[in-house]
């Protein structure tokens, strides 16, 4: 029997539906991809799986029963936006059907290792950005933070800041994916940011001066001078600094401006 390729619509439910479909088909699986990232190749047996909420729900509750690792691997696998993740999730489900939840710690297996590393990367980036996000106080008493990330971690960040900022309003803006979330003091909502504003932020790494609150520049300067002063010249180690805070994040960091 030839092995098949399963395609889904790129949503979380779609991905789960495709994995569930592949498991149920019982045949051999060559890959499970988002249809947008796939171009047909010769001799490929391609099946497009329609999104089926019921199947997705069933698979997800099976994964929930397996424990936290399975859920994390699935959600973070999706947020990691890697092309190959569907196939590895399929392999994970197959292993778990055979060995139970213990299989999730079988690090010698390539798929488990892949998912565990991907999941760590997503969690790691969410954690790192929860520190590297820089809010700017805008005129309307809203705190606005633009950022770019490798993985889609805005959801994790929104959860983090909604527990933290209390009644103050904020907007998190993933400039690369152009997704933004707004906290009004009680709930998080998706909103649209003006496209001219977005372009300006993307180009300059900073909000246009006319939008900034009165004291914003003052605190930015204080922070810059604190950041410069707290370093110990006798122990200077720029390479280590770059290792721990990679340059791709510097664009929106107030303290690294001009570096």
């Amino acid at each position: 029997m030839t092995s098949s390729i399963y395609l889904h619509d790129g949503s979380f439910e779609g991905m789960l539906s495709a994995v569930a479909f592949a498991v149920k088909s019982g045949g051999s699986v060559h890959g499970i991809y988002d249809e947008k990232s796939y171009s047909v190749q010769l001799f490929d047996m391609v099946v497009t799986v329609p999104t089926d909420s019921l199947q997705a729900e069933k698979l997800f509750s099976y994964l929930k029963n397996l424990g936290e690792y399975a859920v994390q691997f699935t959600i973070n696998g999706f947020l990691g936006e890697e092309r190959a993740v569907g196939f590895h999730l399929y392999q994970m489900v197959q292993l778990c059907l055979r060995h139970g939840a213990r299989a999730l710690e079988l690090y010698r297996d390539d798929s488990i290792r892949y998912l565990s590393q991907l999941s760590r990367r997503v969690n790691g980036e969410a954690h790192r950005l929860s520190g590297l996000i820089r809010f700017r106080e805008l005129k309307e008493d809203i705190y606005y933070a633009p950022f770019e990330s490798d993985c889609n971690v805005i959801g994790y960040l929104a959860r983090h800041f909604s527990c933290r900022m209390g009644s103050r309003q904020w907007i998190l803006h993933d400039v690369g994916r152009n997704i933004s979330l707004h906290w009004d003091g009680s709930k998080v909502q998706s909103i649209e940011v003006d496209s001219a504003f977005t372009t300006y932020v993307l180009e300059n790494g900073e909000v246009p001066d006319t939008h900034l609150g009165n004291t914003e520049r003052y605190y930015q300067q204080l922070w810059q001078s604190f950041h410069a002063t707290i370093a110990n010249p006798d122990r200077e180690n720029r390479k280590l600094q770059r290792q721990l805070m990679p340059k791709r994040y510097w664009r929106y960091l107030v303290e690294m401006r001009g570096n």
């Binding site: 520190g131 950041h227 010249p233 303290e255």
Partner: peptide, 10 residues
Amino acid sequence: ICHSWSADGR
């Protein structure tokens, strides 16, 4: 949570 790293890598 670490928020930044200074020039000495700390």
